[in-house]
Design a protein around this nucleic acid. Sequence first.
DNA 1: CGCAGCGTTGAGAGCGGTCAAGTACGGTGG
DNA 2: CCACCGTACTTGACCGCTCTCAACGCTGCG
Lengths: 250, 250
Amino acid sequence: MNPLDATRALMDGLGSEANVCMKCGSRSIGLCAPLDVAALDDMSGESERHALEPRDAIFHQGDPARHIYTLTEGTARLTRVLPDGRQAVIGFRFAGDILGFTPDKEHAVGAEMLTKGTVCRLDRRRLEHLFRRYPVLERRFLDLCVKELAASQDHILALGRFSAEERVAGFIISLVEAQERRGRVGPVFDLPATRADIGEFLGLTLETVSRAISAFRKRGWIRLHGHSGIEITDRPALMGLGSGEGVHAA
Amino acid sequence: MNPLDATRALMDGLGSEANVCMKCGSRSIGLCAPLDVAALDDMSGESERHALEPRDAIFHQGDPARHIYTLTEGTARLTRVLPDGRQAVIGFRFAGDILGFTPDKEHAVGAEMLTKGTVCRLDRRRLEHLFRRYPVLERRFLDLCVKELAASQDHILALGRFSAEERVAGFIISLVEAQERRGRVGPVFDLPATRADIGEFLGLTLETVSRAISAFRKRGWIRLHGHSGIEITDRPALMGLGSGEGVHAA
DNA sequence: CGCAGCGTTGAGAGCGGTCAAGTACGGTGG
DNA sequence: CCACCGTACTTGACCGCTCTCAACGCTGCG
């Protein structure tokens, strides 16, 4: 896996293939992909849909982990806080991703919406039930989990070894690729996170993120459209910087 | 999960409960814990044992992922390299941990021994076979994988938000706790990694790691015994620094 | 039009990186 | 047991990247 897949898969989270969840309606979870219609019925028949506003919490760090969620519309962030209040964004999640899956009693991370959106909530005991009925589902969770683990490791590599500009470049590329994989085309992409969110994800301050983005703009690599639109004008340059082909290139 | 569990679980890797693998002999893999004797026989009957020297590679990044390994003696590190040669240590693994489990075709990380030791090698197709015969085994992999994912997220938090001294303090505490959980008692613990390895794990240079350790020594928090022995003389101080109870403590 | 939130830009400081000696450990051979 | 040597570790001086603090600008909304 390329280091760029780093953030890439962290963003895709659990679940990436398109499918349609019966009750949720919208394009949905890779989780369901290997299931037949009966299983999908089972699953959607037992889930509840919730509409959420920006900044709404889906669940908090430390909450009892009684449900798992599918994000059916919108964008969310996963956060982890320290005793002294310092905080990091662990990852972003988009439509189709799964949130809050853990074998522990409590959620180790919190999840908040960045945009309006909807989630599909499934009771954890029912999930265990589904695991027993459709063993392939459990295997699917395992695969996705290992994939996410690999992505986390790439993120660790980026945080430990990348300069500020390299991290921001990698982040932009991953964001664009995540949107492309979800069917977005046009030259202008969505930048759903604030500079502060990006900074907390990349281990940087919001000023440093802003300076990196300004630098890319001045070099003609990107163009900004309002606060949340970004157009890539020199993709190879961004990719070169963001994928660890540093100065000592082999 | 406490942020200190961060490195803690990264160090424990997959598998932490004690058990005895028939063929490997030594105290072994959490993986086997839920299996009955017949299953253990199956598993160990199909594995091969290998002795390794310090710096030997168990597998390389990019190798076809044909086997999974149990580290039965010694300490290993997991590494990930970038195209330009920059490298990060993703984690450390000790006796009883599992190495190289992935659903991908290739190993995304490399694994090398830090000390002398032995590994138990199991063909991946045989593992799939065992999954079908003992479904509980697959569930166990899933649990361990989620646990390791949580640990990776804590490490991300540490890399993104901790100062150099906080990271080194957290690392030492995790190392000590990992050894205690493996039955080590006395006041002097093993420091199996070089300053360079620790630095690559924590996103620091070896000089910075050395300075942090010297600072702890001068404050009377630790005492060094040769190059690889470390004695904790003020554990609360180290833990306070290493677990994110920074200055703005809540 | 005015406000609030987000983003940009600048100046200065500090943490950690880099480069360069110098030192201690631990294994090997006499 | 000691001398030797290679490796790892320590320490210092200096530099640069990123953080911090602060002011200003933009954008979208009421």
